[in-house]
């Protein structure tokens, strides 16, 4: 708990004076973040290409890995934490995530529903565009 009456700037440190005195904590944080992000990225690329995993579960696993890596970036690179001086930043982020989830899941839900309820097109419509019309 700090004595600062203000919120922390996103990406900033909570006490600038302390950051100038010490040398390593910032470097350690960024390096930890890089190593974790590299590990998660490598896992993602491995999981997408391997045949040793249960194939239907891989897409879900890739999404989970992406969420984890987003969390790593937010905490170690953008310094968004759960500290009391960071509440406003976290609240703004939570609102952004809410809108993103609404836009993506809402679009997918509605468009899947429309596709399912669509009448089958007449046979001429489903012909590929670059195929010549039969005489």
């Amino acid at each position: 708990m700090t004595n600062m009456p203000y919120d922390r700037a996103p990406g900033g440190t909570s006490i600038p004076a302390k950051a100038e005195a010490g040398t390593s904590p910032g470097l350690l944080i960024y390096t930890t973040g890089l190593l974790l992000a590299v590990a998660l990225t490598a896992t993602s690329f491995w999981a997408a290409n391997t045949t040793r995993l249960w194939a239907p579960g891989v897409p879900l696993g890739l999404v989970v890995l992406a969420i984890a890596q987003m969390g790593i970036h937010l905490v170690f690179f953008l310094h968004i934490t759960t500290g009391s001086d960071n509440t406003n930043n976290v609240l703004a982020l939570a609102f952004g995530v809410l809108i993103v989830l609404l836009v993506v899941s809402g679009s997918l839900w509605i468009m899947t529903n429309l596709n399912d309820n669509m009448m089958p097109p007449p046979p001429t419509m489903i012909m590929p565009m670059d195929m010549p019309m039969r005489p």
């Binding site: 919120d7 900033g12 406003n88 703004a92 609102f95 952004g96």
Partner: peptide, 14 residues
């Protein structure tokens, strides 16, 4: 510094 960074954070989220 805090106001500017917070405003830019809002822009990034948008």
């Amino acid at each position: 510094r805090i106001v500017v960074a917070y405003g830019f954070w809002i822009f990034l989220l948008s």
